[in-house]
């Protein structure tokens, strides 16, 4: 009851934040745009129309146009949604730690662990609500107007929310240590960039030096931190293989498994620190 009280409050706080209201408006505009542009040919139900152009479901061998569209839409929108998400929720922990707020929360019969977990889970759920709004909207538009009910596209939301929850472990630790929304955002974005660079370490960073210690450090850092970039890339593979890629990588659960442990470690660090601090 107490935990869910804080959880519900955090979702409400997340949804009411200006950045996410802006996101909601932008997402709504996109949904209206797609609902006007996507359709089905009146003469041939096997042909979908995208902004006036007609495409058969399999225009070329191995190329499903609708799926291709959804993969491109997913890949290009996920980064921006996560960007909005970080801006939207980075302040949740520092706000909670403000004088006058933390005193009130800690005076209630709620353990510090419950409080931090409710905030983190609430933030992830708040972002999930926003993601589901956009993705379910697109899914419904393609389903209702073009007859393409792509469950892979809809289920990819779960992987993106999971990736965001892992990323929030960084935001939570940064928020607890710095008590600043600005720093939390900065650290979260730095981490996204680092995660992207670490993902490319074999083809990019390893070229800088042949030193095995350097390679080992980069590998270690890659595996002990949430593999955010790998998780996002994998989430689009749930929809299907990108036909533009010559050797498309297969979907793998490994980044999610590694990230589960590293995010758990970071949440553990956050809880350890939070449970010992004086406020």
């Amino acid at each position: 009851m107490r935990f869910w009280g804080m959880f519900r409050f955090t979702i409400g706080e997340t949804i009411r934040r200006g950045v996410l209201i802006f996101y909601f408006c932008v997402a709504t505009c996109f949904l209206i745009f797609f609902s006007l542009g996507v359709g089905q040919s009146a003469e041939n139900p096997g042909v979908i129309t995208i902004f006036g152009s007609e495409f058969a479901h399999e225009s070329m061998p191995g190329l499903n146009v609708a799926e291709f569209m959804l993969i491109q839409l997913h890949s290009s929108s996920v980064f921006w949604i996560v960007l909005f998400g970080i801006f939207g929720v980075a302040g949740l922990i520092p706000n909670m730690l403000e004088k006058g707020t933390i005193d009130l929360f800690l005076s209630k019969p709620l353990t510090r662990t419950e409080l931090l977990l409710a905030r983190s889970l609430g933030a992830a759920t708040g972002i999930a609500v926003n993601l589901v709004y956009f993705f379910a909207g697109i899914w419904l538009i393609f389903g209702l107007k073009a007859g393409v009910w792509h469950w892979g596209f809809l289920s990819s939301v779960i992987y993106v929310v999971y990736a965001f929850a892992c990323l929030f472990s960084i935001v939570a630790v940064a928020g607890l240590f710095t008590r600043s929304a600005g720093f939390s955002i900065l650290i979260a974005f730095s981490f996204v960039l680092i995660s992207w660079l670490l993902e490319l370490r074999e083809s990019l960073l390893f070229l800088i030096s042949d030193n095995p210690v350097y390679h080992w450090i980069l590998d270690a850092f890659y595996y002990i931190t949430p593999q955010f970039n790998a998780m996002l890339s994998n989430s689009s593979r749930v929809i299907g293989s990108n036909p533009l890629s010559l050797s498309p990588p297969q979907f793998t659960f490994m980044p999610y498994i590694y990230s589960f442990f590293s995010a758990s470690l970071l949440y553990g660090l956050a809880l350890w620190y939070f449970s010992r601090r004086d406020y």
């Binding site: 009851m1 107490r2 869910w4 009280g5 804080m6 519900r8 409050f9 409400g12 706080e13 009411r16 403000e98 004088k99 006058g100 707020t101 005193d103 009130l104 929360f105 005076s107 209630k108 019969p109 709620l110």
Partner: peptide, 23 residues
């Protein structure tokens, strides 16, 4: 507390309901 802050997006009733839930 001396300097207490309440979520500005909640009404007075919602604020008390929220703190009631926490209790």
């Amino acid at each position: 507390p001396e300097s207490h802050k309440y979520p500005g997006f909640l009404t007075a009733t919602d604020t008390l309901i929220f703190f009631g839930r926490l209790n």
